[in-house]
Design a protein around this nucleic acid. Sequence first.
DNA 1: ACGTAAAATACAACCGATTGCACAGTAATG
DNA 2: CATTACTGTGCAATCGGTTGTATTTTACGT
Lengths: 334, 334
Amino acid sequence: MKMSDLAKLAGVSKSTVSRALAGSERVTKETRDRIQQLAKEHNYRMNMRARNFRLQNILTIGVLLPSNGQAEWLATDPFVLELLGSVADALEAKGGHELLLAKHSNNDPSWILEFAETRSVDGIIVIGQSLYHEELNKAADITNTMVVWGAQLPDQKYVTVGTDNYQGCKLATEHLLAQGRKRFVFLGDTRFPETQLRYRGFQAALADAGLTVHSELTAYSETASDAALNYVSEILDRQPGFDALVASSDMLAFSAIKAIHNGGLTVPGDIAVVGYDDITLSEYSNPTLTSITQNRRAGGKALVDTLFDLLDNKPAQSLFIPTELVTRESTLGR
Amino acid sequence: MKMSDLAKLAGVSKSTVSRALAGSERVTKETRDRIQQLAKEHNYRMNMRARNFRLQNILTIGVLLPSNGQAEWLATDPFVLELLGSVADALEAKGGHELLLAKHSNNDPSWILEFAETRSVDGIIVIGQSLYHEELNKAADITNTMVVWGAQLPDQKYVTVGTDNYQGCKLATEHLLAQGRKRFVFLGDTRFPETQLRYRGFQAALADAGLTVHSELTAYSETASDAALNYVSEILDRQPGFDALVASSDMLAFSAIKAIHNGGLTVPGDIAVVGYDDITLSEYSNPTLTSITQNRRAGGKALVDTLFDLLDNKPAQSLFIPTELVTRESTLGR
DNA sequence: ACGTAAAATACAACCGATTGCACAGTAATG
DNA sequence: CATTACTGTGCAATCGGTTGTATTTTACGT
């Protein structure tokens, strides 16, 4: 059932039908009502793809989920997924745009460029800068309507939204210092820009307090994994005596806590732990996890708002989402 | 830069360009190569929307994330989100189709119908049956290319993929029985079809053992929440003495464990706990959580495979993804 | 050199809507 | 009653591709 069929039924031309359905004043109220009525009766639904094609509007936002530097990944990072949910919410609230979700399971970053080149979307939101700074810069040359969740880097050509990783982790570390902790370990993969900044904030807090890094661990992933668990177990054996662990994500923090328990130590009795992200579960885990909140609702909204500014040709700058330290059991007194 | 521009540049008609780019034999190899070369030089990218419009192909799958019966929800259920990631993976592996993600923050189920009516997608995957059985049946009248993750219901007109909730929860309960537990509590909202079946499996296992339900708790949500926590605290006060808790999801199980700890009891010493879903975190939480695996990778693949069967007009039946009991600390001996 | 078959390319309709402009019908005006 | 102004519809072009058919070009045999 297309517009011309409806026109035949109504005994008018399809231009009249088009105008009638659009509620144009150029067609008599009677004809208009009659046609609208007829459309309802025959359950006519306009072909929106034809309409959008004619009107040259896309009305679609591409959301990209880069892999976390892992080959053949399955999206499991709760923070990323919750942020995705929040972006979907914000987009829905904005209205009128659909969300095209794209992810890639292999580790070849060129798909970001390819996506930017070949897909017809009004704009792109990349959830997670990951290791793809270079590719993102190239993509920014092709499209200027792209917003990335991640860290602000000196030479970036794209717009980012994210928390102030440096200050956030500094805050988390200072919280542990205020508890009287002295021997610090950092857990995270500093190849990731966000983690790199968190590490710097960690170092800065220690430097301010006249302390140095006791040890650092690199888990080649930012999510929970046996690798992370093993790293922590190893450092417990090799270099015991640390009393504070700063993890670059909650999932890593959970892995660390498990390793610590496996080693027969307690959290926070022997070792206090802070995470980053404040995923939903951190409030319900045991021990509950002190963490730096990355407000997902605000984050999703900011990503979408910033993208829409770009779509409207308004100037848009990279920005920080406010962070907050949420204190829970894992860092309370011994 | 459109095809007719390229045709002008090449000094041929656009039909020739079209055929040349498609690699048709009807155009000389020389002309073909020349045009392809020219296209590359001028960085010509075909307008895929125009092409797909002409060819009448959609190449898009709609993925719906219904709210969990909660008003103004933010997608935070790790299992749902991980399943979404897995669907995205499976769809990408299949190739050729894009993923249109839709969710709705208010609790009005009619958007499912509206989506089915107005969006041009080849097929629909609904992640989570939730309370929308009626709406889904109506949607199934409109489109027969729809697959839903959830429970199999007697009068359903749509195809489902999911675990055998009855058997799964029966298995979990039997595991606790084998540990010698006697006084059982079930935690979950039995209005949800999946939870209802899990509850029945729970009851059946107890009946087989000659026991009855000690108490049941309804948290009006299937994810972690203060409500769930309070329910468990309440039952600990009002009706102490139970030694086993079966939760209809891992997130509820985590809430329960927190409440139990708050009440000064231990898991599994005083109360053993099993969950359902086996989300990633269950392996890294403390205590690690015994759970029924709902294999997300298999689930996403089955959803996509089943949908593609429907798209190919092959018969497709509702099916079960195999479950497995993963035993961890939370149910080991006292 | 010419006719003809085969090969290469061009023309034009089409997908399903929108919209500028032409045209017909009616009412108002002189 | 004829002319003008205005109102309501219809025609046809358009968005950017694809493809059946017509047309031109080439190659070849006589």
